[in-house]
Write a protein that binds this DNA or RNA. Structure first.
Length: 422
RNA sequence: GUGGUUGUAGCUCAGCCGGUUAGAGCGCCUGGUUGUGGCCCAGGAGGUCGGGGGUUCGAGUCCCCUCAUCCACCCCA
């Protein structure tokens, strides 16, 4: 039983679950183009440095979560842990100049070597977008509005949209230092986690839920005040644009997100529902600048990623995926002797030409057994081909629901079936 | 990586303080006279009790290890 299970943190997705995935993907393909985005399919493996330089070498993701390996040429390759870096690499590879406005969306599997938990897989799936080349609060706002549009289309309700600005790279470094200095003098009154975070992730410290810590944190200088005037202005304009688009986010002063490349606007969509467990963010993104091997200067962009399995959970239909009990069909074709097989196959082919789902009996079994199968596959029609029918060049068609049946000339059956199933 | 949870039939699970051939429900197969489903009835197939080691006269049950699962921390979508 053990060896045939998918490896940890991955799963097989069966119907009817698979259909729900297709719905999320189709909705993305329908919604994003309305904003000028077109689909880009990038490789799932990239050179490792695409991610190290793109995401940031200090990031948790890069340091301990990447699936990296050496290929036969000794190059270090990595299964993509997120979509942005690869997209940026693709765009950079065909050249991008100042003032270019490139908009793409993508979807597919991502890989991170984390410990699996509720809403967290090692192979997980994202749909995301990137608007690359220009720096403008209008784009940021439009991107967020598009995210809301999408969430609305898939029917997600009761979620919260959180936004914040983390300023420019310089702002952030400076703010980090200021905060660190400020907390350093009070850290011995704070919890163990916070002490650790002082050095590792001071922005996380700001989110600490321990009450004693909260009292101290509440007195800390507001992050927004540590940003440059230009950054604050950019954020202000973004908020205005959002409002004009009919989007009303919550401002989350401590939201910073974990990837190094973010600058200015960052945002996240969270769900307050317990079926998601601790992983309550279904989407996240922001404005960024990414450095890539070969590009002279960092390329700016804004984008987000949606966590597909988390969205599915948030939509509240997260039954475990298992194969449906039986094949479903519109028509079941029963055969009562070997002599009927070729006739049955010919008929099946004709019916499928008319876009009907047809299940053909594949061995000679009792009538009772075959009718049981017809019932189980939820066929509306059972077509019976036996010796009697063969001799008269007719077929028997049984309307399962009404338990009514009739024997009609063979040449009429296709049209009769099509009509019965309309 | 650190903690905890669970692991018995295809699925959901029961199995008391160790004690004969390991159970239920659902599902599956076959039948209930000739070529007819659902409901009902009868019968049947299907289990290395996750794996390995140990304690014991005896282990699904106790101990150790291991693998897998789920959850939390961490981090992120």
């Amino acid at each position: 039983m053990a060896a045939i299970e998918p490896i940890p943190g991955t799963s097989d997705i069966w119907e009817p679950e698979a259909t729900r995935w297709v719905f999320l993907e189709d909705t993305a393909r329908k919604t994003f183009p309305l904003y000028g985005y077109s689909e880009l399919r990038t490789p799932i493996i990239e050179r490792t440095d695409v991610f190290v330089r793109g995401i940031g070498g200090d990031t948790e993701v890069v340091q301990k979560e990447m699936y990296s390996f050496q290929d036969r040429g000794g190059r270090s390759l990595t299964l993509r842990p997120e979509g942005t870096a690869g997209v940026m690499r693709a765009i950079a590879s065909l050249g991008i100049g100042p003032g270019d406005d490139k908009r793409v969306f993508y979807m597919g599997p991502m890989f991170r070597g984390e410990r699996p938990a509720a809403g967290r897989k090692r192979q997980f799936h994202q749909a995301g977008v990137e608007a690359v080349g220009k720096i403008s609060p209008v784009l940021d706002a439009e991107c967020i509005a598009m995210l809301c549009h999408y969430l609305n289309e898939i029917g997600l309700s009761s979620h919260r949209l959180l936004v914040n600005s983390r300023g420019t790279r310089e702002d952030r470094q400076e703010a980090t230092q200021t905060l660190r200095d400020w907390f350093k003098t009070r850290i011995d009154q704070m919890c163990e986690d916070c002490r650790r975070r002082l050095d590792t992730n001071i922005w996380r410290l700001l989110d600490c839920k321990v009450e004693e810590c909260r009292e101290i944190i509440d007195q800390a200088p507001p992050v927004m005040d540590l940003l440059s005037g230009e950054s604050r202005n950019f954020f202000q304009q973004t908020l205005e644009c959002l409002q004009a688009s009919g989007v009303n986010p919550e401002i989350a002063p401590h939201l910073v997100r974990g990837l190094d490349y973010y600058q200015h606007t960052v945002f996240e969509v969270v769900i307050d529902s317990d079926n998601l467990g601790a992983q309550n963010a279904v989407a996240g993104g922001g404005r960024y600048e990414i450095e890539l091997p070969g590009s002279r200067k960092p390329i700016p962009g804004v984008g987000f990623a949606l966590g597909l399995e988390r969205l599915l959970m948030a939509l509240g239909q997260d039954q475990p995926t298992s194969p449906s009990d039986s094949i479903k069909a519109d028509i079941f074709v029963a055969i009562l002797s070997k002599a009927c097989i070729s006739s049955a196959l010919e008929l099946c082919a004709q019916l499928r030409q008319r876009n009907l789902r047809v299940l053909c009996e594949n061995e000679v079994r009792s009538m009772k057994a075959q009718m049981r199968t017809a019932n189980k596959c939820e066929a509306k029609l059972a077509i019976i081909i036996g010796e009697d029918e063969m001799n008269e060049n007719r077929v028997t068609v049984k309307h399962m629901r009404e338990s009514r049946q009739e024997t009609i000339p063979r040449r009429e059956i296709v049209d009769t079936a099509v009509e019965a199933l309309m």
